[in-house]
Design a protein around this nucleic acid. Structure first.
Lengths: 255, 255
DNA sequence: CGCCCCTTTGAACCTGATCAAACTGGGTGG
DNA sequence: CCACCCAGTTTGATCAGGTTCAAAGGGGCG
């Protein structure tokens, strides 16, 4: 615990969103996006999606760059179009806490609404693309498109329940169960996106996983070795193959 | 950890909201409520507050009764008018996780919006009163009162940042720091409500505190004893007097 | 090839859990 | 009124899971 922050030996590039390429408009369509049933426009018809399209800008975010940092003023929400992110908080004493890993279709930045400043930072775990959504303009659309508002509320509420599940994980579970929950959770989210439930690549370092789960990097390493030894997983670097999904689910459920 | 649930020897009364007294209308006014600058109508003018009044019903909630249970269908949000609550999750294996303690002016039930079912239960820690807010009707008001919608978004966002702070607490801090954070947090919230920052009564049991902080009841007891021994606190049952607020704040900040 | 970062593995240690028992105060019934 | 009971709490002793410290292994990339 109390993991001190390591100042990245590869220093975080001074990434400025306004300098990043804006992709051409024709690529910039919710209606032609494979994620529109997972993402913000869930449940909208074509005309409404079109109105959303008009306020959204697609941006590239290079690996290891900050989409936003803790304390940055809040102007935009971001929907992940492609890639993976982590969100994290830094406390004054230099300790980091990873608060989540996000993948395509998920929304970033909702924690910033309350104070108009970001309460956590978001870092791309690989080269990624986001849809930048100016919150002021989104608020205008809320009034005109009730279904959009309703889905936005569901999304925020989902974020709350997600965070509370992590609280249960950190408050109640031992290391083995935490790690099983982590793997099963990733698996579930990949299935929802049409990927394999049993075979995927971890986009985050052991350190990030450990930090997220309230464990040290050594513990994560040992857990991976143990799960492998038991025949529940194949592990090769960041490539994971789940061999015993039922066992992992049972572990995760605590039974 | 893995605290098994204790089935209350005082069995939870089969409390039904619809049977509880509805207080007379004249008591049922946001505009005459001392909390309106903390609660949902923050920032509204008198006419808007009046429209909110018309959809809100004040209800009594006896101590130890469930305002709602995990899994209940979602129809209302609740603003606490008087008293204190805890929210908690129960997992299939019988473990409890207390996800928060709420006091006057705070909003309950936002986690239920995403699935139309409550993801945690809310229990009154003392005889309390809530303002029941039918969510369907609130949604209608959102369209008509943009300031209300904006404040609602802030409130949900605040809940997210609050939960993420608890994640940091559970993931990063040792027992002593967790407990200091807990006390400082209560103190801060009481100040915002016009009460003393240094002298208050814990409304929750040691068990609830421990569960919330990811510690055992014995640890809480020892921490109280230690803080007392150090001269930082006076403790008499649930009555707390903070003698060294600066020390506690420093501990909480990890410095 | 050699450097560096990430990861793995081993051994000792420590914090907080667990187990056990005693204490407290409020409520009840004799 | 007192004896008893019971839930909640305190305190002590032991235990163990996970951390910490240390060192070695493995890949990727210049």
């Amino acid at each position: 615990m109390m993991q001190a922050i390591q100042f990245a030996s590869r220093p975080a590039p001074a990434f400025q969103l306004r300098e990043t390429p804006r992709l051409p408009d024709w690529q910039n369509r919710c209606s032609s996006c494979s994620l529109h049933q997972l993402c913000l426009p869930t449940g909208l018809g074509d005309p409404e999606m079109h109105r959303l399209d008009r306020i959204v800008t697609r941006r590239r975010v290079p690996r290891d760059s900050n989409l936003y940092r803790m304390g940055d003023p809040f102007t935009n929400l971001y929907a992940i179009h492609l890639g993976h992110f982590k969100t994290h908080q830094l406390s004054t004493d230099g300790a980091e806490q990873v608060t989540g890993f996000q993948m395509a279709g998920e929304l970033l930045g909702m924690d910033a609404i309350s104070t108009d400043r970001h309460h956590c930072g978001a870092v791309a775990l690989e080269d990624s693309e986001v849809c930048e959504i100016p919150f002021a303009r989104l608020q205008e659309l809320f009034i005109e498109i009730p279904a959009l508002l309703r889905h936005f509320h569901r999304t925020m509420s989902q974020e709350i329940t997600r965070d509370q599940s992590v609280m249960r994980l950190l408050g109640n579970m031992r290391a083995e169960q935490r790690f099983a929950v982590f793997l099963v959770n990733l698996s579930t989210r990949y299935v929802a996106r049409g990927y394999s439930s049993t075979s995927f690549r971890l986009r985050m370092s052991r350190e990030d996983i450990g930090n997220y789960l309230g464990l040290t990097i050594e513990s994560i390493s040992r857990l991976l070795a143990q799960f492998k030894r038991q025949g529940w997983l194949q592990v090769d670097k960041r490539e994971i193959v789940i061999l015993e999904p039922q066992t992992l689910k049972a572990l995760a459920a605590g039974t």
